[in-house]
Amino acid sequence: MQFSTRTEGDLTIATILEARMDAVIAPELKNHIAQLFNDGNTRIVLDISAVTFMDSSSLGALVSLLKIVGNRGDLIISGATGIVADLFKLTRMERVFRMTPSVNAALEAVAA
C-alpha cells in the first residue's frame, strides 16, 4: 500500500495514495498506520481524498485503528467523497469517526 506522511504542528498527515481500499489493502493499512502511531505520531489525520472505492473490510481496519488510538491520541478521517462517504453514512460509522471534508478542514478544526 502506498501512502505519504508529513507533519503540520503536532499533527501527522497520512495521505493514502491508492485509489482503492479493499480486503487486500486492509491489513496493510492497519499495520502501517498502527506503526505510525506506535512511533509516537499520536495525532493522525488520514487523508483518503484520493480513494475512489472502499469496501467494508477497510472500514473494519479503520475501526481497529480507532481502538488502537483510543484516548491516547486522535484519528481524523479527511476527504471521503462519493461511494466512500456513502459507506460511512450507510453503516452509520460517520458517527463514530471524527471526519472532515478535507485536510485543511481538519487543521482548522484542531486549531479552533
Binding site: 472500514l59 473494519g60 453503516t91
Partner: peptide, 11 residues
C-alpha cells in the same frame, strides 16, 4: 451492526 459497539466487520 451498532456503531457504538465499534464493529470491525459484519456490514
Amino acid at each position: 451492526p451498532d456503531p457504538e459497539d465499534l464493529p470491525e466487520g459484519g456490514w
